[in-house]
């Protein structure tokens, strides 16, 4: 790891100021991806701005929405009675990110800011049509994800909250990479009165994406069988040593059916 200056601001304004003052400053949330990246010397920040003292670790239900503070760890989301009741699919998803140790420290804000193409949270945020609240604005999920490791965030912008609309039904089905246990294919389905949204993580070449064909079919009939015969374009899939593009495309279908079945 290269050395850096460590800053732990006590409020959002100071954090933004520190980030804005230095183009090489980087924010540290849970650090579950960022610290390994630093260890591999793949990133050389001048200042690391620790966001843990900003008071962003909370969960609340407000105005028919589930609001999760950006620095809320996965384990907290997974164990939260509010989340389990209002949006159990999200608790389930959070409870299967990484391992127990990662879930104590990794945060929803960190996951979304990083937008790893095999992270789980982006699938939930996109499928649920959540909004991402930052220190300056709110961003719709459909506008937020802009390809792998790329988001709508400005360099000195900090995610503060994620607002989740509450669906009638939802579920997440993950096929884990056998080695890393990240999502090789993760499918989140969410049924609203207005229709069904489906988001896929892990599989696509450009990070998380919505599956229009699945959404159309499931909006007509929210059953696993509704997905029969609907394929996923192979040429948009990732391929690596763990799975070919056709395999991933196939798994997208399998996991989508499983998610629909789990959503009930």
């Amino acid at each position: 790891m290269y050395d850096f200056t460590y800053a732990k601001p006590a409020n959002i304004a100071d954090a933004v100021k520190t980030l804005a003052a230095d183009a090489e400053a980087k924010a540290l949330a849970g650090g579950m991806t960022f610290i390994p990246v630093l260890k591999q010397r793949l990133n050389k920040p001048s200042t690391v701005v620790d966001l843990s003292a900003l008071g962003l670790n909370y969960i609340k239900l407000e105005g028919g929405k589930l609001i999760v503070g950006a620095m809320t760890p996965h384990g907290t989301v997974a164990a939260s009675p509010e989340v389990k009741k209002a949006l159990p699919a999200l608790a389930e998803l959070a409870g299967n990110i990484g391992d127990r140790q990662v879930r104590y420290r990794g945060t929803i804000g960190g996951s979304l800011a990083n937008n790893d193409p095999s992270a789980c949270y982006p699938a939930a945020v996109l499928a649920l049509g959540a909004t991402i609240k930052t220190n300056t604005r709110t961003i719709a999920a459909d506008d937020y994800f802009q390809g792998m490791f790329t988001t709508a965030l400005n360099p000195d912008e900090i995610i503060t909250e994620v607002h989740f609309p509450l669906p009638e039904k939802a579920a997440y089905a993950k096929f884990a990479n056998p080695a890393s246990r990240y999502a090789m294919v993760g499918v989140f389905v969410a049924k609203f009165a207005s229709g069904v949204r489906v988001a896929i993580t892990g599989a696509g070449q450009n990070g998380v994406f919505r599956h229009a064909a699945f959404e159309a079919a499931l909006s007509k009939s929210f059953t696993p069988d509704a997905l029969n015969g609907i394929t996923t374009p192979v040429d948009e899939m990732n391929a690596d040593i763990h799975g070919s593009a056709p395999y991933r495309a196939h798994l997208v279908g399998v996991m989508a059916k499983r998610a629909v079945a789990a959503a009930g």
Partner: peptide
């Protein structure tokens, strides 16, 4: 790469990977 867990300690009662925390 934070995979093996040989470094797990408890911090404030929670198990964490001490190789992935400053």
């Amino acid at each position: 790469t934070s995979q093996c867990g040989a470094c797990v300690v408890q911090v404030n009662g929670m198990s964490v990977k001490a190789c992935t925390m400053l």
